[in-house]
Amino acid sequence: MLRTVTRAINVIPRVITSVLLTIALVASSLVLSAAVLIAPTKALAQHGQPSIQQLLQEPFLDDYYSNVVYGYEIITDTQKNASRYVGNALNCSNCHLQAGTQKEALPLNVAGMYPKWRAKNGKRNGIGLRIRECFLYSMDGIMPPEDAPEVLAISAYVSYLSQGQIMGAEPEGRGVPTLPDTGYDPNPANGRAVYLAQCASCHGTQGEGVAGMPPVWGLNSYNKGAGMNDIREAAGFIWANMPLGNGKSLSHQQALDVSAYLNLQIRPSDPRDSKFLKLLEHLIN
């Protein structure tokens, strides 16, 4: 009895090998026939660009589109998909509204604008460096390395959104609108009143962000090096888009006031500052 069992076990490897070989043969023939069938439909899909929703439905994506989808997922859920480089509680889509597709809300269709010189770091910036700096300032995290998959995926997504734009020309609705001069200085005290009336229901009285809404100040928000920490930039964003879904309802002056109020709040320090120099300055003074 035992001997038959042993003999049977000795045969197992051979049986498994032959079964595997058969499977491999059948599968490879299936792949071949599928490739023949799929080829014509794929050629048709070249004309228009598939939407993200369509891409999300696809079971298979090529290198470019799978990167685009990954970039989309990072933009919409940065906390989960690029957590390594994020230091606060924000997501990219908190400022780049509608996953970077909404005009006047820092849309991401700007691949044609790069490389360009930026005063912020005094260098000619490629799209990669631009994305990496977002992690450092707006996400208050650490700068990802140049070839991090997250950076590559986001730049693929930016290229995808830039389809149809003219290279080198500024896309319509880029960045945020520049508010006209109201003739008055921004007034933080008035801004506080507007904030409590219009913004606090979502962003919280302490700026901490209620129920999944982004915190606008405190240690979980963007740091002092971020573009949003600039009063004019933030005012433009607030005027055009806030309160969410009811943009352009505040007056220019109200937006400036709120922006000045936000600018006075506590938030992480500017990563460009050398702590050593700060300490030195402090000691000398």
Binding site: S83, R84, Y85, V86, G87, N121, E133, L136, G141, I142, M143, P145, P271, R272, D273, S274, K275, F276
Partner: peptide, 15 residues
């Protein structure tokens, strides 16, 4: 402490 990250471009472990 002496040089900020935009200058050093160091790679950190991260969160």
């Amino acid at each position: 402490f002496i040089w900020p990250q935009p200058v050093t471009e160091l790679e950190y472990l991260g969160r």
